[in-house]
Amino acid sequence: MYQHIASRESEVSLAELRGDCARMAPHWSASEKTVVTPVEPALIHGVTVPPASARLVDAMSEYGD
């Protein structure tokens, strides 16, 4: 069963992804806007990304390239 799900996920088109997001949007609430002060990259230390998240972000390149 997992093989089928993994195969289907790799076949999702950008149009399907956008449709899924549009259907989900009404269920999300927006928080109040906060002012974010930029931080110099040299001051950022100790950031780690879990392997599952790194794979997710890596797989997203097909939508942005």
Rank of each mutant, 00 (worst) to 15 (best):
A25L: 10
A22M: 06
E16M: 06
K33G: 11
A15W: 02
M1Q: 14
D58H: 13
E9P: 00
C21P: 01
R18W: 13
G46H: 05
Q3L: 14
A59H: 09
D20L: 15
A54T: 00
T37H: 04
C21W: 08
A42D: 14
A52G: 07
A25E: 07
S31M: 10
V47C: 05
M60H: 13
S53E: 12
E40M: 02
V36G: 10
H4M: 12
G64D: 14
G64C: 10
E11C: 11
A6T: 14
E9F: 09
T34Q: 11
I5L: 13
T34V: 15
V36I: 13
S31T: 07
M1K: 08
A6F: 11
A42H: 00
S31N: 05
V47F: 12
V49P: 00
P26F: 01
P38E: 00
I44H: 01
E16F: 05
A59V: 07
V57Q: 00
V49N: 05
E62Y: 15
A54M: 09
S61K: 12
E32Y: 09
Q3I: 07
E9M: 09
L14H: 13
L17T: 13
Y2G: 15
R55G: 08
L14A: 14
E32T: 12
H45Y: 11
A30E: 06
G46I: 02
A22T: 08
A25R: 03
D20S: 15
R55C: 04
T37V: 04
H27A: 04
V39D: 06
H45M: 10
H4D: 10
R18E: 04
S29Y: 04
E32L: 09
E40I: 08
S13Q: 05
V12S: 02
A42V: 04
H4W: 12
L56C: 13
D58S: 12
Y63R: 02
I44W: 00
T37D: 01
D58M: 09
A22R: 14
M60G: 11
M24E: 09
E62F: 13
A6V: 11
S31Y: 01
H45Q: 15
L14T: 03
S29T: 15
E32D: 14
C21E: 11
